[in-house]
Computed example of a mutant assay.
Amino acid sequence: MKEDRIVIVEGITDKKKIKKILDEEVEIICTHGTLGVERMEELILDYNLDHRIVFILVDEDDSGNKLRKMLTQELPHADHIYIDKAFREVAATPEPELARALLSRHFIVKPIYLI
């Protein structure tokens, strides 16, 4: 079920950029950086993450890798979406590149970004 999908990103800029590219309603939550144990538990409970299809899309830098590792431990069923290391940040990744990454995970993206 597509409604059960949720994308976890680091910041609000990442969220806005992904929403702009997507051509469907997908819940996107921001961690605002690395999470503490308590905040992680809150997210899991508040968003029912143990019972949803979770995608992790974070920056390819030290803090992003740390967050990805932590999320993977807590949500082993999560699927990872990676950006090219050359761009380092989701927000700095060109739209067509992000669109292809999302499309590869069966998200519906606006055709304008697939040029």
Rank of each mutant, 00 (worst) to 15 (best):
H51P: 08
V58Y: 15
K20N: 10
I53W: 14
H80I: 00
P76H: 09
V54W: 11
I28W: 03
D62V: 06
D59W: 15
E42V: 10
G64S: 08
L35Y: 05
R68H: 07
G36A: 05
I21W: 08
E60K: 12
M1P: 11
N65W: 04
F87M: 08
G11E: 04
P96W: 11
E74V: 13
Y82L: 09
Y82V: 00
D84K: 10
I21Q: 08
E24Y: 04
I29L: 03
D84M: 09
L35T: 07
H77I: 00
L22Q: 01
S104Y: 02
D61L: 09
T34E: 13
L57W: 06
Y113R: 00
E27V: 13
D84S: 13
T34G: 13
E97P: 01
E42T: 12
V54F: 10
A99K: 13
S104P: 04
R39S: 12
L35Q: 06
I21T: 09
L114W: 13
M1I: 09
K110P: 01
I44E: 11
I18H: 03
I28N: 00
P94T: 05
M70A: 12
E3I: 01
E89R: 03
I6L: 14
D23Q: 01
D50A: 06
L35K: 00
F55I: 07
V9A: 08
R100A: 11
T31S: 15
T13D: 03
A78H: 09
T72Y: 08
Q73R: 09
R5A: 11
K2E: 13
R52L: 01
D23H: 02
K16W: 15
L43W: 10
N48F: 06
H77T: 01
E27D: 12
M40S: 08
G11T: 06
H32R: 02
I21K: 10
I18T: 02
K69D: 15
T72L: 06
Y113A: 04
E97L: 13
V37F: 13
D59C: 11
E60N: 14
V7R: 06
S104C: 04
K16S: 08
P76L: 12
